[in-house]
């Protein structure tokens, strides 16, 4: 078990609901600073795989490792809770529907967890909120409640909230799928900026051109297995599998 040499390592991930197998023996390695996109039709298991990385959806088999530590360790309930809470502090996640806390302002959304879990002082928290919201271009809305923000703005605050925990890894679960088309770019810009800063990211997305432009590697998943994987130039331009070609034909229409 000490051959752990990759930053993120998923080994033989398996997940089933009763007799329905949604992940079938998936293995994936991600290096520090890499950006990996997971694409595939809905129901392919791509979101489940992403949510297994921070154990929002527990695997029924296999292991997830981050920076030398196993995330889904087999521990008694109480100890496991402690362990997973600590692990999740290192794994930021951004959701399709933002899941901002509606009873908190943008500032409070960003600093709630750092204050509770890292015992930040008021001054340090204010500084952190300003820093992170500045980064996503939302400093001017720092004291707004989510209900007064547009979808794109909400998602940017949600990204700032995740970044405020200084995660080692960021997971994006269709971060732009719920947005009106004209709001997608502002979120993509923020993600590009993170890429430039060499944040390690795993991105589940429907946006092929975005995946092609920022990602180091693309995984195409279908029916619980990784059908094809490689650099975007290869997967998007010269896919080797029929299923990939067929999927891309449907989704690249008008993009290529």
């Amino acid at each position: 078990m000490t051959d752990q040499s990759h930053f993120v390592e998923i080994r033989h991930a398996q997940k089933s609901y009763g007799t329905l197998e949604v992940l079938k023996d998936i293995s994936l390695n991600v290096e520090r600073g890499q950006i990996v996109a997971i694409i595939g039709p809905s129901g392919s298991g791509k979101s489940t795989l992403l949510r297994a990385i921070n154990d929002l959806d527990s695997l029924t088999g296999g292991e997830v490792w981050l920076d030398g530590v196993q995330v889904n360790k087999d521990l008694p309930h109480r100890q496991y809770e402690k362990h997973i809470n600590a692990m999740r502090q290192d794994i930021g996640m951004v959701f399709q529907h933002f899941n901002l806390f509606p009873h908190l302002t943008a500032r409070e959304n960003v600093v709630m967890a750092p204050k509770m879990l890292k015992g930040l002082s008021k001054e340090a928290a204010d500084k952190l909120a300003e820093e992170q919201l500045e980064k996503v271009g939302m400093l001017d809305r720092i004291d707004y409640y989510p209900s007064r923000l547009s979808g794109g703005q909400k998602q940017r605050v949600a990204i700032a909230r995740a970044l405020a925990m200084k995660p080692k890894l960021m997971l994006f679960d269709e971060a732009t799928s719920a947005l009106d088309p004209e709001l997608v770019d502002e979120v993509n810009m923020v993600m590009k900026k993170l890429a430039e800063e060499h944040m390690t990211m795993i991105i589940v997305t429907h946006e092929m051109d975005f995946a092609a432009s920022v990602c180091d590697r693309v995984l195409f998943m279908d029916q619980g297995v990784v059908v094809e994987e490689g650099p975007p130039e290869i997967v998007f331009r010269k896919p080797t599998k029929d299923r990939t070609r067929e999927f891309l034909r449907k989704h690249l229409a008008g993009v290529a």
Partner: peptide, 15 residues
């Protein structure tokens, strides 16, 4: 919405 609890848990908050 259950996404609220999920978002809190992904930040490392306990149940």
């Amino acid at each position: 919405d259950k996404g609220q609890r999920e978002a809190a848990r992904t930040l490392g908050l306990s149940q």
